[in-house]
Design a protein around this nucleic acid. Structure first.
Lengths: 346, 346
DNA sequence: TTGAAAGCGTTACCAA
DNA sequence: TTGGTAACGCTTTCAA
């Protein structure tokens, strides 16, 4: 059933039926009711391909997820971000076009989306400190929003969490407990967020006159094995840390394993504070659940970020003249359980 | 730049230019070369909206991911499956339309995709034992493939791993080591794969004359916390298990934590065998990595499954008459490390 | 308040 | 081997 058939069955023109269906005001109420009823009865749904061509809008938003290729497993963060964004898209009538590409091919993907008009805007994730995608999208004149930021983030739209502040606070928290040898287990430091986290960590140490301790800082893909290896090396080294600041839940679990194998227990012999957007991965509210792991978590809701990014992007699409929207979100410091006492001596 | 402009600039008809671009044979080689060069020079890309309308094909495949709403975190399996499928789609020129919907609304999503013609086929994931989506898609005449199976899986296309066999083998392996009190930590048993896994587990026990031990079987969303709680309860109970068969990596990590808190070490005091498609989540090759966790893993590559499902689906789309394609994949039993000796006495 | 008709940018059929 | 032209199914402008 298409518009022509529907309109013929009603004895009306396609124009009128189209107008009635799309809520145009210049349709008599009675006519509209009749059209709507017939459409429902006939199970009519406008052909989206035809509509897209006629309107020139794709009613689709592109997500290009770059894969480093090194990871055997996609960062689960993406999935939750997609859920949040997808919610808003569904509500606003947009489709979500997903393209997962090897790292280098992201630009090609954007270029193609722009030139063949398959999307009205795109979502940019995992920005690097210097990221060519920004200039490219501006050149292509494709509306976009970045989840995170690049080094120079003055003239485009983004939404980021306050990584520096979060890690400064987490580190200060451990410093206040009396720790002085604090380790950082970070994500890949070619990504902007990891650099910021490191900066917050170092700032907090510096404020207390503690020089950076390179042997207590490691960065890599955020797997359990990485956390385990890093912690094992550090704990067996000359000046072992008494506390860890960790960038994600999986390496934190690895830290726990390394500690456990050395007879140390988190929250008793060693402290771990873990920043994560996916803490729920280990349970419903791992930070505070009774019997939950003794992590103290700095968290933000990744799903909420997805929702907000989608809202901003749709705004940008609908109002081409809009000034860049930039939002910096505070993360929540969830102190579900004690991270343990200060080390007795240092 | 559109086709008309391009053809005018070349002094050719749109028809010829279109044919040259699309590789039709009836174009003189010289003409084709000229057209191709001009297209590249002008940075021409056919408008996908127009092409979709003209051909009647959406060149898009829909993935509807149902969310139970209970989980705070999307099953990371989906992401890797998407990567595999996306690879094939990109190669074959298909877009991937992603729709993440609350559990009950999946049917509405499929119905809409079918009626507005935004996709050529759909991917079905996480089938239940009895799943209304199958009949719906058949009624809608929308090509589809199921990753997994329903109870009655005779007359549609699916790709599944041999869950019963995998869990039977895993359980037999532990039985051969001398274990008799083996626990099952399973996924949600309204999903077909979890039911099959349980069946394999029970079959192996039955073959040795061991009756099902209800207090050694638990099923729920596969989080760390669930694994921890289930293992803790079992280990503190009257007849504690000496080994665990676990359905995913996160609950297995929870089992490890519960055991550790009771002074037990995996591979020494207690055995854990873990089936997982995301073992890589804890490191590159957790089952056999030196220093890796002492899990023994039954694994399959979820990404490979995504690729194959996509290939089958595209085949189905291109050849409407095709008989159902059904593939049952064997999983690989990776015995990276010993699961520990048999219990000395029972 | 309604309708006729011209796009939208391709592909595909039929002639030449 | 090339070109004219009619779809594809909708939206939108202009008239009535």
């Amino acid at each position: 059933m298409n518009l022509r058939e529907l309109s013929e069955s009603l004895g009306l023109s396609q124009t009128t039926v189209s107008r009635a269906l799309n809520g145009y005001p210049e349709v008599r109420e009675e006519t509209r009711t009749r059209v709507l009823a017939a459409a429902r009865a006939a199970n009519y749904a406008p052909n989206s391909r035809a509509r897209r061509l006629a309107t020139g809008r794709a009613m689709t938003i592109g997500h290009v997820v770059p894969l480093s290729g090194k990871e055997e497993m996609v960062n689960p963060i993406f999935a939750d971000f997609l859920v949040g964004a997808g919610e808003v898209y569904a509500r606003e009538g947009y489709d979500l076009l997903l393209s997962m590409v090897p790292n280098g091919e992201a630009e090609r993907a954007y270029r193609q989306m722009a030139s063949n008009g398959s999307v009205d805007g795109v979502m940019v994730q995992s920005p690097r400190l210097v990221d060519g995608r920004i200039a490219l999208l501006q050149e292509l004149d494709l509306p976009f929003i970045v989840h995170g930021r690049t080094g120079d983030h003055s003239n485009y739209s983004w939404l980021d969490i306050a990584n520096i502040r979060a890690f400064r606070r987490a580190t200060e928290f451990l410093l206040d407990l009396g720790h002085t040898r604090i380790a950082l287990i970070n994500g890949p430091e070619d990504l902007d967020f990891a650099l910021r986290r490191r900066r917050g960590f170092e700032e907090a140490l510096a404020a207390r006159g503690i020089a950076p301790q390179p042997h207590l800082m490691q960065a890599d893909l955020m797997t359990e094995l990485f956390g385990y290896n890093a912690a094992a090396t550090m704990l067996d080294g000359p000046e072992p840390p008494t506390a860890f600041v960790v960038s994600a839940i999986m390496p934190a679990i690895g830290v726990r394993r390394a500690a456990g194998e050395r007879g140390m227990r988190l929250g008793r012999d060693i402290s771990v504070i873990c920043h994560d957007d996916m803490l729920s991965y280990i349970g419903n509210d791992a930070a505070s659940a009774p019997g939950g792991p003794p992590f103290t978590a700095t968290r933000s809701s990744i799903r909420e970020a997805g929702r907000r990014c989608a809202e901003i992007l749709i705004d940008l699409i609908r109002n081409p003249g809009l000034a860049p929207v930039q939002e910096l979100w505070e993360t929540e410091l969830t102190l579900g359980r004690s991270t343990g006492p200060a080390p007795s001596a240092d």
